[in-house]
């Protein structure tokens, strides 16, 4: 097989390495600069590093936001899995016309613009007393991500051979027992993949958080960042430091689940 890189492939790789690498390097570099050095070309790479931007950010607001982010992301991931695992299993196993209908409904829901859903949800949450509460944001994020998670998870359950389940029930295991001790362990990678992606998406979600949290005091990191970047007179080192801090948990999840993401993401997304 022709796997050696030709000049075109090398140029393509070089271009994309710069396109995706430079912004990452630039965030980190800027976060260690003084405000006066930010737009000074002579201080682009050679500058006196300072952690001022980080120390300015490290206050109780940041820890509150971090706590909110963790609660929202963990809560949403748990709730999404609680819904998506049984739903995906049912959609993978039951053969009935209603399954096709369910799949179509999920596809449509997954495509809905979030900006359209936020308006009616805002009104209902106002009525139900869910504004300005973590529960409201978690519920909204779950409704947003559960259809996608279900669709992504379904092929993993379909890949579990039916015969294994049949032998399970022959041995006298009930439906729940069969699912819990035969199907779920075999679909482990799928659950982990979907769990990781849900966590990543919930961590980054900011529109619901900005809209349903009535004061910045309840914002998660993503919403705090969205609020600061659209403000006038941006403190760039501070903002980039905040971006770095927001991205660190993502880096941790990414490093621990990269292989799953790389191979599992493409399974359900296109089919």
């Amino acid at each position: 097989m022709n796997t050696s890189a030709g000049p075109v492939a090398i140029l393509t790789k070089l271009f994309f390495t710069l396109l995706y690498g430079v912004p990452m390097v630039w965030i980190v570099l800027t976060s260690f600069k003084r405000s006066s050095d930010v737009f000074d070309p002579s201080a682009a790479f050679v500058f006196e590093p300072t952690v001022q931007a980080y120390t300015r950010n490290l206050n109780s607001n940041l820890f509150d936001a971090l706590q909110q982010s963790v609660s929202i992301a963990v809560g949403t991931t748990a709730l999404v899995l609680l819904i998506a695992v049984p739903a995906a299993y049912a959609l993978a196993r039951v053969a009935h016309w209603s399954v096709t209908l369910g799949l179509v409904a999920l596809i449509v829901l997954q495509m809905m613009p979030q900006t359209a859903l936020v308006i009616p949800l805002f009104r209902h949450f106002g009525q139900w007393g869910l504004l300005d509460s973590l529960t409201g944001v978690i519920i909204a994020d779950t409704a947003l991500l559960a259809p996608f998670a279900t669709l992504l998870l379904r092929p993993f359950f379909r890949a579990v051979p039916m015969s294994l389940e049949e032998s399970g029930s022959l041995d006298g295991a009930g439906m729940f027992r069969t699912f819990w001790s035969i199907v779920l362990p075999l679909a482990r990678n799928g659950v982990l993949t979907v769990g990781s992606i849900t966590f990543l998406l919930a961590w980054g979600e900011f529109l619901y958080a900005v809209s349903f949290m009535l004061s910045p005091g309840g914002y998660p990191l993503s919403a705090l960042l969205a609020q600061q970047v659209s403000a006038f007179g941006i403190d760039w080192p501070g903002l980039m430091a905040l971006a770095v801090l927001t991205s660190i948990p993502i880096l941790i999840v990414f490093v621990s689940s990269y292989r799953l993401l790389r191979d599992g993401l493409t399974v359900g997304a296109v089919k």
Partner: peptide
Amino acid sequence: WSAALLALMVFVWALPPVVNGSVWKF
């Protein structure tokens, strides 16, 4: 190189849109 570039790109994809948006605004 290919493996590292793929990992880099998937990482950028996994970053919150607010982070990518902020960086490009800058």
